[in-house]
Design a protein around this nucleic acid. Structure first.
Length: 534
RNA sequence: GGCGGGGUAGCUCAGUCGGUCAGAGCGCACGACUCAUAAUCGUGAGGUCGCGGGUUCGAGCCCCGCUCCCGCUACCA
């Protein structure tokens, strides 16, 4: 149990187009979460990837005159993988559904379900649009008017539809209604937040129908192993990435051992639009296969882009690059972690990012590091002084770091990164207040108070040391710079090796450690010239 | 239509079991300070907690009605 791997996933993103801010958000949150767990010393596996099959991708490729594999290869290399570097994500794996490990695992999984009689051949019927070559949901079918009078048309694209029946394979999803409801009841934390849970339960309570799992009208997908005329429906195939990535279905014994060790996942992070797939279909599939279901599905909300600078017609089509280019990846990660409540919808705006960047990162943390390093340089020639006797002011700081650390740690377990960052930030605010109140620049004028001066600066340096550790999961780059400026690498060791639980332990930076003033951690930015073009 | 969530200071939002809950941050105003990235610290400014009823000794927090916004109501992912 102690060696269990903390396994977190993002959805695999549909490579229909380039990534936007929503993808970046999901991926960043998972990264903050997993980095924190690594910083605890836990074994962690963070998976992300892309979903590449399906009719939409096929169409897009055809429209661009290339074969689908070539099309997705290009997008993945040009857009999707680079995004991870842009926002500084430390994923352990990146799965593509066109990889053979996924195809092999998918086929093995469905063979297994077929063997267990969870699959049957049936007929799927519905309204089919010949021109767009796809089935249209009943809700999107309306009576035609004018030239289309007397016909049914798709409200999506106005094309005429006709009722058609197709031979398909089905998964007996309807068998799992009660099992799922019992499961939700027995595992109240399985779906979070509560709003998502409510929707899922109400949906399942209304009854489930079997799910068609194959398609035969196009061939961009994974072949159904027992019927060459069919490919798997993209969703029921894509979900399997969570198991195929960790070795499911592989003939290699090392892979199956890995699967045993890793599965089930601890958290599937998803957007609230795809909760149903993850909280209903996915667990039902696993139940049918006799495999454990994941521990949690966490649905986050939408990012609403406010402020005319970013919204306009582009709305959610903001590329993460726009923010990172101006503010940097650390600020990007910080902003989304801090300013939004994970699980709720939230508003972002260019103005708000700029405001928080300056108020919290530049003026708060950055300036704190700057003033401390400057004083150690000025009063002690850049060498950390020894701390003398503590006063209640120092005790309060030490106490605060301990409680803030505990609060932040608890917030991470609750998947509330915004609360974790807020808790840690109490340290930033307290240290700025401490420095101001202790007035080391006044103390420095009195040669007889050298020890007191040393105590004040050593205390502040220790506080920064703790901050570097606690904020490393959120801002990997800036905290390393801070760590180096504190001379902590040589004195204590690499930042990544520092444990959350050890952060509050006082006195780790020994007297004599060289403190250097690094360039501003978060330099002020002239937003009048930095706004993204329309 | 049904189900679910929301409408709290200019802005973004907290408010767990009803009783210092009327809050935080930003912005703004005034003051202090000068180590620091024109940064920091302190103080203040008062919002009928969407509207109208009700329950209660007492209600953003419970109940009823109304209004506005949003999500879900299965095979595009």
């Amino acid at each position: 149990m102690a060696d269990r791997t903390f396994y977190v996933t993002t959805p695999i993103y549909y490579v229909n187009d380039a990534p936007h801010i929503g993808h970046g958000y999901t991926t960043t949150m998972g990264d903050v979460l997993t980095r924190w767990h690594r910083q605890r010393g836990e074994s962690v596996f963070y998976l992300t990837g892309v979903d590449e099959h399906g009719q939409k991708v096929l169409r897009k490729a055809e429209a661009n005159g290339v074969d689908p594999q070539e099309w997705v290869d290009g997008l993945v290399e040009r857009e999707w993988k680079p995004m991870l570097a842009t926002i500084d994500v430390a994923n352990d794996d990146f799965i593509r559904t066109t990889e053979s490990r996924h195809e092999v695992g998918t086929q093995a999984f469905w063979e297994r379900l077929r063997d267990r009689d969870a699959v049957y051949k049936g007929e799927f019927s519905g309204y089919y649009s010949v021109s767009s070559e796809e089935f249209v949901g009943d809700d999107d079918v309306v009576d035609g008017e004018g030239d289309d009078e007397g016909f049914k048309i798709s409200s999506l694209d106005g094309s005429r539809v006709e009722h058609m029946t197709e031979s398909n394979y089905f998964f007996r999803l309807s068998d799992y209604q009660q099992q799922l409801l019992d499961f939700y009841e027995a595992n109240p934390d399985f779906i979070a937040p509560a709003s998502a849970r409510n929707e899922v339960i109400s949906f399942v309570s209304r009854g489930l129908t079997d799910l068609s799992i194959s398609r035969s009208t196009f061939d961009w997908g994974i072949r159904v192993p027992w019927d060459d005329d069919h490919i798997f429906y993209v969703w029921i195939e894509a979900l399997l990435n969570y198991v195929t990535a960790v070795g499911y279905g592989s003939a290699d014994s090392g892979d199956s051992e890995r699967f045993e060790r890793m599965w089930p996942a601890d958290v599937h992070i998803v957007g609230k639009d795809i909760v149903r797939f993850h909280a209903i279909i996915w667990p039902a599939m696993l139940m049918a296969a006799g495999l454990p279901v994941p521990h949690r599905v966490f649905a986050h909300g939408w990012i609403l882009v406010g402020g005319q600078k970013m919204s306009k017609s582009k709305a959610n089509g903001i590329h993460p690059n726009q923010i990172v280019e101006t503010f940097g990846s650390d600020a990007y990660r910080y902003y989304f972690s801090r300013a939004l409540t994970f699980g709720n919808d939230g508003s972002i705006s260019w103005e708000d990012i700029g405001a928080r960047y300056h108020a919290e990162l530049a003026n708060g943390l950055g300036n704190l590091a700057s003033r401390v390093a400057a004083m150690v340089g000025k009063y002690f020639d850049g060498v950390l002084p020894a701390a003398g006797p503590s006063t209640p002011a120092e005790d309060a700081i030490i106490e605060l770091v301990a409680t803030a650390t505990a609060d932040a740690d608890a917030a991470i377990d609750a998947i509330a990164p915004q609360d974790a960052v807020a808790a840690v930030w109490r340290i930033v605010d307290a240290l700025n207040g401490y420095v101001t109140e202790q007035q080391p620049w006044q103390v420095a004028k009195d040669e007889s108070q050298r020890e007191r001066l040393g105590t004040i600066l050593a205390t502040t340096a220790e506080g920064l040391r703790a901050l570097a550790v606690l904020l490393h999961p959120v801002m990997p780059k800036a905290t390393v710079v801070l760590w180096e400026s504190l001379g902590a690498v040589d004195a204590i060791g690499p930042l990544a090796d520092q444990r959350i639980a050890d952060a509050p332990r006082w006195g780790q930076l020994p007297a004599g450690t060289p403190i250097t003033k690094s360039p501003a951690l978060f330099p002020r930015i002239d937003l009048d010239v930095a706004e993204p073009g329309a």
